[in-house]
Design a protein around this nucleic acid. Sequence first.
RNA 1: GCCGAUUUAGCUUAGCUGGUGGAGCGUGGGACUGUUAAUCCCAAGGUCGUGGGUUCGAGCCCCACAAUCGGCGCCA
Length: 443
Amino acid sequence: MAKDIWIGDVQNGDYDGQEVELKGWIKRTRGSNKIRFVVLRDSTGTIQCVAKRDVVGDDAFEAVASALIESSLIVRGTVNVDERSEGGHELVVSGVEIVGPVDPERPFPITESAMKAADGGETEFLLDNRHLYLRTSRMTTMLKMRSSVFGAIHSYFRDLDFVEYQAPNFVAGAVEGGSTLFEVPYFGRKAYLTQSWQLYAEAAMPALERLYTIAPSFRAEKSRTRRHLTEFWHAEMEIAWATNDEVMNHGEGVVRHIASTLLDERSEELQSLGRDLELIGRYADSPFPRMRYDEAIEILQAKGVDVEWGQDLDYSKEKILTQDFDVPHFLTHYPKIAKPFYHRVDPEDDKYVLCHDLLAPEGYGEIIGGGERTWSEQEILARLEEEGTPKEAYQFYIDTRSYGGVPHGGFGLGVDRVCSWLSGADHIREVIPFPRDSRRVTP
RNA sequence: GCCGAUUUAGCUUAGCUGGUGGAGCGUGGGACUGUUAAUCCCAAGGUCGUGGGUUCGAGCCCCACAAUCGGCGCCA
């Protein structure tokens, strides 16, 4: 029953002149009462199948003629090289079996008009029918790109002997501000969905020294932007004995490795999305410049932007700043008052913390946030006090500093944001199969 | 949380100054032996988001609500 012939291989010329059996779904049909053209789709590509009435017989011909888009079929025939067929190959059909028919009362709803209106973006209708939209060529392309991005992150860290490590998704305390926590009932108590793997990773840092994960994080932000999801995939790393600069080296390393992996594995997909391969090549090959927060403020002020020292840089300002960037840039050394307690204060100037954000070009904004962690027990207690954060929820975290605290750091990378940026998507929703935002948890 | 916009057939849309809502795709029927989103002919399919108001008369004007979309704040 398993299939062993893939349409992509047929289009590559692996079966020219041979008798084959193809399994797939109807993408489109056309023809007359004597000859029918069925464009068959599988996960690897499409091919035109030609059924002639006098060859296949009346019954099979009528079956093909009445089969609607997205019916599943098994088609037997001979592979023919023919310029008239898209892809250069076609199947001259000798026999057909309709496996899963489509009811004419309920034809496949994702029509050309629905796709055309979306024009690569998303409409309410397509989001409501996401389970069916997944099998269109644009979504298939996005999902293949996404798979390569995940694979590249794993291979980057594993090749450097990082250990993959899992943290719980039910947690008791916040990493970011408490207002963005999803509260869930937990046997009469309250628990929250995790916002980050970080605090639990820091607990394992003395055991594993180099660790990473790719896992979902949850943030109850009512953000209505093309960069936000409430459930997003978070690639995080934590490394012992490392400085802010050394952590940044890994951030740069993994992002460049993702870009070069996409060029290796998905150049066809990149091109079908209209991406310039030279541009992606530049992301893979160029070093990412590093700029201190103060420098960014000066640049913005010189451009006439109304911004004061001490403010966190919001997206509208990031956007102005990144306009002139042709590769991602790191922003480092933010003012202490703009960042939470776990960022280590710069020993050379206590107005700053040793942190970094990586800003993607082309208007895609922040894709990495990270830095060196506050690692001594005294410092972390002082920072919590300064912030007015109650220390009870973080007792286990403070404990990790009491027994052999060492300098360390890490970062979190928004995997969906990276997918969105590198594929040139109009919206982050386009790169995840079932997007979750403040207005949508279905389908 | 704030600001702005949209809602007409399964989908995508047109709709003039307020005077009996048109089309393309899809579906069904018919014609056609090489089509590329095939083409040609025909048909079915609409209480115009919901509720109220103004008017002799509302898809169109007013109010409320809802859903959706875009942007901001916050972040990955």
